[in-house]
Design a protein around this nucleic acid. Sequence first.
DNA 1: GCATTATTAACCTAAATGGGTTAATATTGG
DNA 2: CCAATATTAACCCATTTAGGTTAATAATGC
Lengths: 122, 122
Amino acid sequence: MNLDHTLIALADPTRRAILQRLSRGEARVTELAAPFDISLNSVSKHIRILERAELVRRRVSGREHFLTFNPAPMESAVEWMERHRIFWTERLDALEAALRAEDAVAAAKEKSTHSSSRRSKK
Amino acid sequence: MNLDHTLIALADPTRRAILQRLSRGEARVTELAAPFDISLNSVSKHIRILERAELVRRRVSGREHFLTFNPAPMESAVEWMERHRIFWTERLDALEAALRAEDAVAAAKEKSTHSSSRRSKK
DNA sequence: GCATTATTAACCTAAATGGGTTAATATTGG
DNA sequence: CCAATATTAACCCATTTAGGTTAATAATGC
């Protein structure tokens, strides 16, 4: 659950394509490599980076390595982003709430204190 | 709005710390650099990477450069992740919905068709 | 056992990144 | 104009990454 590893792993289009493929079901390395015209070796390296991020799990059966998608680490990433979106979604929510409130009371009354009001964070 | 640039920018603890600071209000480069014991130069480079990702906006006033946080690009990143979490959050939602439904009707009745039902995606 | 197939390991190279140091530029205050 | 300040630009260096090619390992089918 290392956020760095997760984001580094996601910050590459090839790896995102691999995850996209895996999100529809498990696959072997050769199957994953087929759509790309890069070497099997490169795909293997990408997979290792995805494994380091725990975004991909490996199940070995004989000589075949089946890979599955594990979205859990993305939870942390989304959580981080959501946490830092708060300050503006909160403002949007507050704005929306204010608009609704103004709908009920007189809008003109609010106008004078509108630009000077400074919402303090809880 | 380049997903690569966004994720690359986020995949570094120093840059995330900078964003965290900026999410509480604008700051100049020297202010941002203060908490870290790396050179101003390095901070400047990190900021350039954040600017490339459009996660940070710059407003120049005289010799001072004020930086502000722009969370918009994270929307795309979150969207991508949410899209690939669907296959499992959907299952959780479906499970929850099923539990609520079973609460209303007889749970025993549902039981026979429960394991064979295969929800098709819209 | 042996050839075939699936996958990784071991190297190599080019490019990008993160850090540093030392100019260079631009603006402000006297 | 001049000194001080804020910021970037230009280099240098070590590390990482993405890609390649060519072994090496491991399992299967005969």
